[in-house]
Design a protein around this nucleic acid. Structure first.
Lengths: 129, 129, 129, 129
DNA sequence: GTGGTCTAGACCACC
DNA sequence: GTGGTCTAGACCACA
């Protein structure tokens, strides 16, 4: 699992999102020590300061915390992580529904479109199999 | 229908998106003459240069065209507009599904979640009524 | 009114506090545009990045906001500013009372000590006069 | 009475303050032998080096002294301890008054605010009783 | 070796 | 000219 960035959006924001993703998906487990800033920075091929900024922002959400000189750790609070994952999902659903409705699709039409999409996807799977 | 901007994203990009939206949703009908750059800029409370840039970008997609001295017009090609709307919708669906799958939700779970969301929404509507 | 820093505490934290102080004390009025990052940095004799960090942190409290390319402004919300001032005062009182009580002084003794301090201060004033 | 640390400030400074507090408050009586560095370090869950540094600093104020092979002892000089306590209190009062005046409160307003705070506190006590 | 802070300097999009 | 971002590199306190 590597690091991919879109241009036109701040790197540190994308770093933040990707680390957050790793946490809510369990790649970095609760209580686990994160790699050092320098390691992470090298891994992602960014400047340590950029990574530092991402981690500092992430810390504001309590998803990670810093222990002076010992390193950074993922929160032990599994509920916090679970809530974060759920919150991210709900935000995405709401944003998506809102965007589609602005495009003039009703909630029913959206669901219908997605079920089509779903069926199409299933046919593709069969083909691959 | 006013103009709302998020900070942290270029204004001209958001202008472009909102004008495009007005076209695919029929607020600006096929063949209709758009307000002048100055009028639009004033309406949106942005610098005319910024609006100019948005319209120039929009012209590259053929959704609008310029007639020398008469102003800018929405394309008469209804199919083009319809395709644009459909393309936008499909992009949003794909982006959404991708994002949700990265969060660890399967296609089935997503549909289930959205149906819940749908039902919750319906209950809210009843309350409002 | 100049800029004074203690060593041993981050500069950006002290910048933040001093700018906050200027706002709650009305040196920077509600709605007023702040000097640019570069100006402030030069005035305080710090690196623009350091000032930038202080302002970014300050923005998180909504006491100031950024308008892309136009500059930073003090909030127009006078109530927010008033609350901030009051909150700062209350925090200081509580911290102070707690520290004194840890030193073994009762609330009554503290008030008595401060009234002595007050009277001493008044005598000093007379002397100066 | 345990050991609590704020992050973002050196541990050894906080150790120093807390041991000093124990001495001026009589938790460690005049002439009493302190626990060994190792014991203190274990109790506070810090690195022995850190505790060592705190004690060394504390020794510079004469509040404790080292006897070669016997360990560290609280000074027998009760006046020294009393002065230290008084000095700490006065420093806190002055710092507090200065901070409040910078916030724009006059000495009279501060006393008034604190008497309010006092009365509120008394009402709370009644409730608890 | 860890994170934290600061400086210097550069480039960019935007208005 | 404005704020925003990023890099590079340095130093420091701390454990």
């Amino acid at each position: 699992m590597g690091w991919i960035f879109e241009q036109n959006r701040p790197i540190y924001t994308q770093l933040l999102e990707q680390i957050q993703m790793r946490i809510v998906c369990g790649v970095y487990a609760p209580g686990e020590r994160l790699p050092s800033v320098r390691e992470l920075a090298q891994e992602a091929a960014v400047n340590p300061n950029t990574m530092q900024k991402a981690l500092a922002e992430l810390e504001r959400t309590s998803l990670i915390y810093t222990q002076r000189t010992a390193g950074r750790f993922v929160t032990e609070d599994a509920a916090l992580i679970r809530d974060c994952r759920r919150r991210l999902a709900m935000e995405k659903i709401e944003d998506f529904m809102k965007a589609m409705q602005e495009l003039g699709y009703s909630r029913e039409e959206i669901l219908a479109l997605m079920q089509q999409d779903q069926e199409m996807e299933e046919r593709n799977e069969e083909v691959r199999v």
